[in-house]
C-alpha cells in the first residue's frame, strides 16, 4: 500500500534562507508520526511545506501519490487538513458555523449551498470532540481548550486522509491534552488515515506516537519507534541537554511521590 505522505529530499525556508534541509520520510495509513526537536529546528517549517503553505526550495512532497506543487488548494484540502490555532478572533462566528467552514471544499460553484450531508458531518464532528452542546455559542467566548476542540472538529469536517497538528497541546491542561489525543487516536483508528504532529511534550510524544522523527538544525537526525528515540543518545545531542537523565529524574520523583501516597493511604 503506497504511503499517504512522502517527503523526498524536501528543503524549505523563508526569503531564500533554507530552514529545513533535504528531509526524507514517509507516513503510512494508520500511523501517528510525531516530529520533535528543539526550538527553531524547522519542525513548523516542515509542516508548512507539507501543507503547501510555503513553497519548497528543493525536493518534493507527495500527498496520496500526487506532488503538492501540482495540486490546487481545494484538492489539497480534500486530502490533508491542519488543526489551526486561533490566537485572536475578532469576528463572532458560532461554533457550528466555524466547523461548517471545513466543508468549503466539498461544495462546487458559487451558488452551491450547504447540503444536509454537510450539516450532518459538522454535527458528527462536534459530537466527536464533545462540543455539540456549544454549537450555537460564539467562538470568541470559548476557553482555549474548547477552541482547540472546535478547530479539531473543523479539521475532521474536511474529511481528510491526513491531519497535521502544530503543537496541538498549547494552552491546554493535562486532562484536555489527553482528551485531544484520544480524539485523534479514535479518528486514525478508523482506517486509511494518518496524523503528523509537531510535539514539544516528550512524554505525550512517547505515549501518542507510532513513530517519532527527531529534528535538529533543519535536518532529520533520527527516526524510529518512540522507545528507540527516547532511549538513544541522539535525543540528548539534538537538544544539547541531558533530556533522558532529566526525564528519568522527573519520573523517579513522580514514582516516589506516588509510592508515598500509597504508603500513607495504606497506613
Amino acid at each position: 500500500m503506497p504511503p499517504l505522505v512522502e517527503v523526498r529530499g524536501a528543503s524549505a525556508g523563508y526569503r531564500g534562507i533554507e530552514v529545513v534541509r533535504a528531509a526524507n520520510f514517509a507516513v503510512a495509513a494508520g500511523e501517528r508520526v510525531s516530529i520533535i526537536g528543539p526550538n527553531g529546528c524547522g519542525k513548523t517549517t516542515l509542516l508548512k511545506a507539507i501543507c503547501k503553505l510555503i513553497p519548497l526550495m528543493g525536493g518534493d512532497v507527495r500527498i496520496l501519490g500526487r506532488s503538492v506543487s501540482a495540486l490546487q488548494r481545494r484538492d489539497l484540502a480534500a486530502s490533508i487538513s491542519m488543526m489551526a490555532q486561533i490566537s485572536e478572533q475578532w469576528f463572532d462566528f458560532s461554533v457550528l458555523d466555524t466547523v461548517m467552514m471545513g466543508r468549503y471544499g466539498k461544495r462546487r460553484g458559487v451558488l452551491a449551498t450547504s447540503s444536509s450531508e454537510d450539516w450532518r458531518v459538522a454535527e458528527d464532528c462536534l459530537r466527536t470532540v464533545g462540543m455539540l452542546e456549544q454549537a450555537g455559542d460564539s467562538i470568541t467566548w470559548l476557553s482555549g481548550g474548547q477552541r482547540q476542540r472546535v478547530m479539531l472538529a473543523r479539521a475532521f469536517a474536511q474529511e481528510p486522509r491526513i491531519i497535521v497538528l502544530d503543537e496541538p497541546t498549547n494552552h491546554l491542561d493535562l486532562k484536555h491534552q489527553a482528551e485531544l489525543f484520544g480524539y485523534l487516536q479514535e479518528w486514525v483508528s478508523q482506517g486509511g488515515r494518518a496524523v503528523i504532529q509537531v510535539m514539544h511534550d516528550l512524554s505525550f510524544a512517547r505515549l501518542y506516537s507510532d513513530r517519532i522523527l527527531l529534528m535538529s538544525g533543519g535536518a532529520l537526525v533520527a527516526e524510529g519507534r518512540p522507545e528507540e528515540i527516547m532511549s538513544g543518545t541522539a535525543l540528548d545531542d539534538a537538544y544539547n541537554f541531558g533530556i533522558r537523565a532529566f526525564m528519568k529524574r522527573s519520573f523517579a520523583l513522580w514514582e516516589e511521590n506516588t509510592s508515598n501516597e500509597r504508603v500513607q493511604t495504606a497506613l
Binding site: 501543507c51 503547501k52 503553505l53 490546487q72 488548494r73 481545494r74 489539497l76 484540502a77 480534500a78 487538513s81 491542519m82 489551526a84 486561533i86 478572533q89 475578532w90 469576528f91 462566528f93 458555523d97 467552514m101 471545513g102 468549503y104 471544499g105 461544495r107 474536511q158
Partner: peptide, 19 residues
C-alpha cells in the same frame, strides 16, 4: 463564504481550500 473563511487568516483559509 470566502469572506467568512478569510476572517480566520490567510493560512487557515488556504488550509480550508481557498486560493
Amino acid at each position: 463564504r470566502e469572506l467568512d473563511i478569510l476572517t480566520f487568516g490567510d493560512e487557515q483559509a488556504a488550509l480550508i481550500g481557498i486560493n
